[in-house]
Design a protein around this nucleic acid. Sequence first.
RNA 1: GGUGGAAUAGCCAAGUGGUAAGGCACAGCUCUGCAAAAGCUGGAAACGCAGGUUCGAUUCCCGCUUCCACCUCCA
Length: 464
Amino acid sequence: MSIRLFNTLTREIEDFQPTDPHRVRMYTCGPTVYNYAHIGNFRAYVFEDLLQRHLEFRGFTIDRVMNLTDVDDKTIRGCRHAGVPLGEFTREYKQAFFQDLDALRIKRAAHYPEATASDHITRMIEMISDLVKKGHAYRAEDGSVYFRIRTFPNYGKLAHFNLDELQPSGRVASDEYEKEQIGDFALWKAWDEADGDVFWESPWGRGRPGWHIECSAMATAILGASLDIHCGGEDNIFPHHEAEIAQSESVTGAPFVRYWLHCKHLLVDGRKMAKSEGNFFTLRDLQAKGWTGREVRYVLLSVKYREQLNFTFESLEAARKSLARFDEWSRRLQETASTTPEPLPETLDPERFGAALDDDLNISAALGALFELIRESNRLLDAGQLTPGQARSLLAWRERIDSVLNFSADDEGVPAEVQALVDQRTAARANKEWALSDVLRDQILALGWQVKDTKDGQKVSRKG
RNA sequence: GGUGGAAUAGCCAAGUGGUAAGGCACAGCUCUGCAAAAGCUGGAAACGCAGGUUCGAUUCCCGCUUCCACCUCCA
């Protein structure tokens, strides 16, 4: 069974066939490093992580690129406000970004090119020069260079926009009177005073690259003229990805991307996330409230990428409980398993999980299959009907699907201080000193750990 | 104004032209010194509203309502 993905370009679910049968060239639009990324940004990155991991699960090798936009209006404004050089300003947010990726258990891309790297600036200038030479771009009076969209008949094809119907939304300052056509977009932005010392020399004078050209330059430099997959948030469809197609194909003459995948935005409490609404969260905000990256990952992952995801604190609570169920099931299997795998009972269906993900990454259905399998195997464990060999096979299956989900609990050692109290409590309980037992339980709780009295003695874990 | 997406139990969320996966919450049971935890079990008399097509629609079509998104640098 092949993998089916929804292609924004055709608006259809298509069988996925990379150019090279085994290697997938994948480009994912990354962050602009002027601030800490918010959970909406991370929904996109978690979706891309799921895509990469499932493709790997199915045997593909993924060569993935994610760019870091470290020069644009916001980064320049930010560094000037902070009174530090651009590179210094963005460095902090780059580091924070990678910390957040780790917390969310997002697999690293193979490449994280930075827009300001000199090789990339050089390539952008070369591409723009080529576009000017071919008549696809022109230099305006102030030294900015624009792409001439009427030279690219397919412009608007990805977004399915009719150019004649495009209307300025008023969101963007329309001070670019020098453009031939309203839809022409900047390839190179001429320096002005607000840019301070941020500029590069070019054939058109001092300036800096436009946003769109950065992705085209870095994607084609690293992955070649044609990519298999290009992802981003739905807001990137227009104009960003539309512009990337126009630039890239006008330079290379080759189809830029075969499969375009876009994830929907998330809402918070049913509303658009916005600072002015007071429902705007970075990962750090949630961590400060005691939520772990694993829990946030679960929430961001658990809804299909083509549906809006309604983020709530109730959903975080549910994620915590669901993960606890997964952890407990894993622990029970571990206790039962032998070393020799045996065929699974017929009531367990290990194929549904992957099959659901093959179907345009239907993660909800995949998780449904996982939890049904958990319930059924718990039932068998309760009845003593799951053999140690079958438990071993289930653990092996668990490892496989966890290569996609990455839900496993961190192995966290119990501090000696806590362990000492637990040992005392074990002794107290052996003597039926219940009052002492309860006091010790409270002391352990005060240290941030909790004990559960099971048939097999005390189990200690981090207080949820 | 243009274009696109969505409305399923208290909450989140799959799915199908023939009477609804899963998770959380809730209730019961088991376990237990107590508690907690864990496991199991249970539950929607029709899936936004009003029509139409059909033997039959939540699933197809029309209209309406509400929400969301994009319309030139917001994932």
